[in-house]
Structures are given as structure tokens and as C-alpha cells.
């Protein structure tokens, strides 16, 4: 055992024990759309409470107790976040809302993802997944290595189908 311990890692002990306090420092500027996100959260809480009013209530054990409690908590928290956001300055030189939320790569992947989901019931699992993987990989590699993307997609799909469909007997979409 001593041989083993001498040749093995010290990393967990040697790791730097510097305390990172950056997460506790409030940001000076608000991110683009931060207020809108908090307002949407507040709206969700308000709607949650509104629809909970239709549920049976009147007793401490009614089905509406927790939905009302959770909705009220969401409203309280997002209210605080909203007020805190109002006190922060707007970022001047930062990206605009669209660029912050949805950079081009994310937009393309989201469109591909939605198209994949819509195509899934029509084309079935193998063709739609193959197309999704090839188009996704080719786009993200900026049009390079098309043959590699096709080969990797085909190989990984073959492995996935073999493992899930035939070994684990999982039904694929």
C-alpha cells in the first residue's frame, strides 16, 4: 500500500485553498433583459396564484395550499429581484438584448432542435437524428470536415441504435 500511495495523486490536498468570494459581490450593472426576466417570473407567480384560486380551498389541507404558497413565494422573490435590478445601472457598452440572449450559434441550434422535434414523428428516429447531427456538426465546424461529420454521425447513431434498441431494448422515438 505504501508503494501505491507514494505514486498516487496529491491533487485534492494540493489544490489551492483560496476562497472565491466573487459570487457574493453584487454586479454593478444589470444584464440586458434582467428586469424583463424578473417581471416574467413575477407574472408567472401571479398567474399561478390566480389559477390556484379555482382550486378547492378553505381548509389547511386543501389542494390549493401549496400552489398558493409557491406562487406567493415566486412573487415575493421576483419582486425583490425586480427592485434590486431597478437600483442597478444599465450596462452602456455591453451587447444588445438579442446578441446577449441569442448569439447566432444558439439561434441556429435552436432552429435545428425545433425542426428535429417536428421531424421526429414524421421521419422517425434514425433519419431525423442523422440529419440533425450532420447539419449541427457541419455548421458548428463552420462548413469544414463534412465527410468526418457524416462518418461520425453515422457511426455514433449505429452505436446508439445497437445499444439502446437491441441491447437495452429501449423503444426509440
Amino acid at each position: 500500500m505504501s508503494d501505491l500511495s507514494s505514486s498516487l495523486p496529491e491533487a485534492p490536498e494540493a489544490a489551492p485553498a483560496v476562497k472565491d468570494l466573487s459570487v457574493f459581490v453584487p454586479e454593478a450593472h444589470r444584464r440586458p433583459g434582467e428586469l424583463g426576466a424578473a417581471a416574467l417570473g413575477f407574472l408567472l407567480g401571479a398567474l399561478g396564484y390566480y389559477f390556484a384560486l379555482d382550486m378547492t380551498s378553505g381548509e389547511y389541507s386543501s389542494p390549493s395550499v401549496f400552489p398558493k404558497f409557491a406562487s406567493a413565494l415566486i412573487m415575493a422573490c421576483t419582486g425583490v429581484i425586480l427592485l434590486r435590478g431597478l437600483k442597478k445601472d444599465k450596462q452602456k457598452d455591453g451587447p444588445g438584448l438579442a446578441a446577449f440572449l441569442l448569439p447566432m450559434d444558439v439561434v441556429v441550434v435552436l432552429i435545428l432542435l425545433v425542426a428535429y422535434c417536428v421531424a421526429l414523428p414524421w421521419l422517425r428516429f434514425v433519419p431525423s437524428s442523422f440529419l440533425f447531427m450532420v447539419i449541427g456538426m457541419v455548421y458548428l465546424q463552420r462548413g469544414k470536415n463534412i465527410v468526418r461529420a457524416v462518418l461520425i454521425s453515422a457511426a455514433s447513431l449505429a452505436v446508439l441504435v445497437a445499444i439502446f434498441r437491441y441491447l437495452f431494448m429501449v423503444i426509440l422515438p
Binding site: 437524428s129 447531427m133 456538426m137 458548428l140 461520425i152 423503444i171 426509440l172 422515438p173
Partner: peptide, 18 residues
């Protein structure tokens, strides 16, 4: 990640459907 992440999404789809 350009290669692994599309595969992760496919795995997520298989797992969810299952």
C-alpha cells in the same frame, strides 16, 4: 464540443422518450 454536444442532445431525446 461541436461533435459531442449534438450527440448529447440525441441521448437526451432517447432518454426522455424512454
Amino acid at each position: 464540443k461541436e461533435i459531442i454536444m449534438p450527440v448529447v442532445i440525441i441521448l437526451s431525446v432517447i432518454g426522455t422518450y424512454a
